[in-house]
């Protein structure tokens, strides 16, 4: 690992000043950044440890009904927060489906947004990867690419965004609050991620020195709380990244869908908001035919980027499943893990 200078500022202003120097990087949970530093893909000159900035550790309901989540809230704390559980249950479901108990205790909300792709070629400094340096090329195109993107990719990069948490954030149109040398601003979750055609890894929306201070969950997303789900498919029953996942949120009245929000995970370089699919559901009956139509719309432009054509059908099916589950209502009971060996005969052991 390359040597670095370590600083632990006491205030946000001090942190911004320190991180404004080229080569400086913020550091919070570190579960992704330190890992990338160990393999030599990230080589910051200085680390600005922000874990003592207590102002960023609060979860605060706002006057306009939205919920402000400080960037340093740990995943495990957010997943058991009473406001999240009652108003935004798909967020808790997504967080609890991600990583392990240990990692959820370290990882922060802001860091989750900054997660880098888990593509093996990105992780290897000796492989060609346009995210290392523009123009290097992409070894994933001819390599192990069964888990790679099926939507929105170009030959520049076919990696997927690994986060679970960001999928319901995208579905509900969350906003990211940043502070920096030029002051504070808000970025929509859509703008926060750019697609790989522009060769920009997660975090590129931030200028040098800018820090994520909070995520805002909009108040209008609360109406989905009775019918909001996040469902994830993975290679093993726990502690694995999504092969595909879906967040589905429905607002149903008089037997018709009045509003729908859909996002897919594990399919693209960003948490993939499927607006075309949402449009097919507005005014439709909440039944399997409608959900299949929506899933077809969501995946209409999907194409394999390698040995991963199966992900297109998997994404279709997981979306139908998530929509059905959402229509059935957010249960007091959490789901069995898809494909779990514990799903049948739970008490049989």
């Amino acid at each position: 690992m390359k040597a670095f200078d370590y600083q632990r500022p006491e205030t946000i202003a001090e942190a911004i000043k320190a991180a404004s120097k080229p080569g400086a990087s913020y550091y919070a949970g570190g579960t992704n950044l330190l890992d990338l530093m160990k393999v030599g893909v990230r080589t910051p000159d200085s680390l600005i440890d922000i874990t003592r900035l207590d102002d960023l550790k609060r979860i605060e309901p706002q006057k306009d009904g939205s919920l402000r989540i400080g960037a340093l809230v740990r995943n495990s704390d957010l997943a058991r927060n009473v406001d999240i559980l009652s108003d935004y249950p798909a967020i808790a479901e997504a967080l609890l489906s991600g990583a392990s108990g240990q990692l959820r205790n370290s990882a922060t909300v802001g860091g989750n947004l900054m997660q880098q792709p888990r593509c093996a070629y990105f992780y290897d400094p000796h492989s060609a990867c346009n995210l290392h340096e523009v123009g290097e090329g992409c070894d994933a195109l001819e390599g192990e690419n069964g888990k790679h993107a099926v939507l929105g990719w170009t030959k520049t990069c076919i990696a997927v965004h690994p986060s679970d948490f960001c999928v319901p954030l995208a579905a509900m149109g969350a906003r990211v609050v940043v502070d920096g040398p030029d002051g504070s601003r808000e970025i929509s979750i859509d703008e926060f991620y750019t697609l790989p055609g522009s060769v920009q890894p997660p975090g590129s929306a931030l200028k040098q020195g800018e820090i994520i201070t909070a995520i805002i969950l909009p108040s209008d997303a609360k109406r989905f709380a009775p019918r909001a789900r996040y469902i994830k498919l993975r290679d093993r029953t726990s502690y694995a990244f999504a092969i595909v996942s879906a967040a589905a949120m429905l607002h149903i009245g008089d037997g018709r869908i009045k509003d729908a929000r859909i996002a897919l995970g594990g399919v693209a370089a960003n948490p993939w908001r499927a607006r075309e699919a949402e449009d097919t559901l507005n005014g439709a009956e909440a039944n399997e035919a409608s959900f299949k139509k929506a899933a077809d719309a969501a995946l209409a432009d999907a194409k394999p980027s390698g040995d991963n054509a199966h992900k297109i059908e998997l994404a279709r099916r997981i979306l139908v499943r998530a929509l059905k589950a959402a229509a059935d209502g957010t249960p007091p009971k959490m789901p069995d893990l898809p494909g779990s060996v514990f799903a049948v005969g739970k008490e049989a052991r």
Binding site: R80, L85, S86, E93, L96, K333, M334, L337, S340
Partner: peptide, 12 residues
């Protein structure tokens, strides 16, 4: 009472 991904209830 931290919930998990297989908990019977998020809040129970």
């Amino acid at each position: 009472n931290w919930p998990s991904n297989v908990s019977g209830s998020l809040t129970g």
